[in-house]
Design a protein around this nucleic acid. Sequence first.
DNA 1: GCAATTAATTGGATCGTTCCAAATTTGTCA
DNA 2: TGACAAATTTGGAACGATCCAATTAATTGC
Lengths: 348, 348
Amino acid sequence: MNKSRVTVVDIARAAGVSKSTVSLVLQASPLVNEATRAKVNAVIRELGYVYNRGAANLRQSASSRIIGIIVNDLTNSFFAELAVGMDMVMQSAGYVQFLSNSAESVDRQREVIASMREHGIAGLILSPARGTEAGDLKPLAASGIPVVAVVRNVVGAKVSTLFSDNYAGAKDAVRHLVSLGHTRIAFLGGIANTTVFTERVEGWRDALSEAGLAAPDRLVIGTAASRAGGVAAIERALLLPEAPTAALCFNDAAAFGVCDGLRAAGKEPGRDFAVVGFDDVIEAETAVPALTTVSVDPQGMGRRAAQLLLKQINAGRVEPETIVSSVRLVVRQSCGAGQTDRTRRISA
Amino acid sequence: MNKSRVTVVDIARAAGVSKSTVSLVLQASPLVNEATRAKVNAVIRELGYVYNRGAANLRQSASSRIIGIIVNDLTNSFFAELAVGMDMVMQSAGYVQFLSNSAESVDRQREVIASMREHGIAGLILSPARGTEAGDLKPLAASGIPVVAVVRNVVGAKVSTLFSDNYAGAKDAVRHLVSLGHTRIAFLGGIANTTVFTERVEGWRDALSEAGLAAPDRLVIGTAASRAGGVAAIERALLLPEAPTAALCFNDAAAFGVCDGLRAAGKEPGRDFAVVGFDDVIEAETAVPALTTVSVDPQGMGRRAAQLLLKQINAGRVEPETIVSSVRLVVRQSCGAGQTDRTRRISA
DNA sequence: GCAATTAATTGGATCGTTCCAAATTTGTCA
DNA sequence: TGACAAATTTGGAACGATCCAATTAATTGC
């Protein structure tokens, strides 16, 4: 009902103390007498006082408790999980987040970064939009705001980076397919000319040559990193003269698409064609067939990124570091090896 | 390199004008001379000045350009899309968002709301965690901050609400299944005792009785509203004495789970059992079989919610309004009717 | 050329908090 | 009890912007 907001001065007047004392109570200072503290707190509750962090921030030279998170595609469940992981850590560390979706637009990303700077973020976690340049992060770095890039890296930018071991993961996956007897193994889906794509293809190529198998370029079919992209990739793959019998897919979304495409072509994934994904999104486990995939634990990665950023914020000025998050192959059914408990139980 | 930040006073000094003039330039006031404006802008760029919105906000009586968004489960692609829709509108209206994930925890939600209040949000869009009470939103309403609840409603709270027509959607879906000749139609997945669940079951029940069919309670199998929940629900459904031949599922995630469960039991969704979902997430279109589902267009809903909130913010004080977003049944393959172009092309 | 307008500019005062140095109260001990 | 230390409390100056009333500069009309 009060048109104007309640301030420390109002509290002070009502409690019969000075505003300085109220301020001390607000920050739980040990300097203030217990009785006074109790009285002030009572008045605070009574008047429905709301702390004004903006005003406090203005005076405090220390950085704010706001951190920015920008993700390139929130509708992709990999990134959504990544964001959730960050959210968990930041929340419990007493930070709030500006979370934004750049939708792969560098312009949009630039705007969001500018807006976040104006709001005085203490740090930024960025899953960069495609085409992000070092210059886009320059102003942040210049004003000493720590930045952590996740999943993708920004070439030339002096920021901490956290990404998964794409090369090793792809290599492991292909080795496994080779051990199952496959000789024509494709790489399906994903957008070429991205660092992540290149690294995974590199792992695929090296695993093949290590096994003495050919790795012809026509077996690498880059499309969108989505379900639809997976469908398109497998359609093209099946038209090849010597069609592959197995595939490592760019990510899980593409892998699901590949399964869809196989079924549409009358082939059963897992039985007639081995499919391996990358990411290990939650659906990978419950899908039928359950997806064999390279697990990168997006939530865990989000948590680690958040921790890294917090460390940098607390340390003041820190040298950028690069963390390669290790991955592991989770063998389920879509590659044709192994069986889960659930399947056995149902078919029994 | 400068340890302390650049302020309007620094700009003023460097440009040889007063800080008031700089302020005028910052807000693009027509009062300032073109030559002066140009000079000031040049200095701003040169010194790398960053506008301090916190300080500005402190003085300005008007509300901030920050809005809060809290979503109950960001890992669910329905809600992720919802958030993206909001993000689009808010971004282009010049607002930034605090986006948080309550993960269905009312405590967490309360903390986040408190934190947002301290940061002076201009409004809040909330997809409430289960168990949210009117009291949780009371303080916001009391301080005149507009709130829009989406997807779920908060009983007793005087806030605007935007949800989809669950009853009509469910009814339409079941009518369609009836028209295909099904007589034993189950309702699978979803958590009972939620408004959304109740409304959808109501639509299911009424469509059945309208067709002169029985709607026994055992055909309603509530589980989690997830892929895993769908698997569990269909497993139980198939064990019933007179097993159903079709199902309306609580949402698309559950519907995918039902498809998985059917395959695991040796039945092909669409051919041996009709499956209909609810939501129309992006994957519904590309899945095999493509999912027949009640389309609620989550992004569109997010956009509408954002527009509603903006309207309320601009209007000052507004009466809470309730908008029921209409839905439409999208017939694809999982219900056994119709064929998409893609399937025909591949099988040809 | 001078008053009357209009266009541009400018010092404070202010927003709600924190910080600092100084003032006050309380407690201790000889 | 008085001196001294410790425990509390406090007024006023920041923080970085905006706003207002007031001032100064430029333009116009006659």
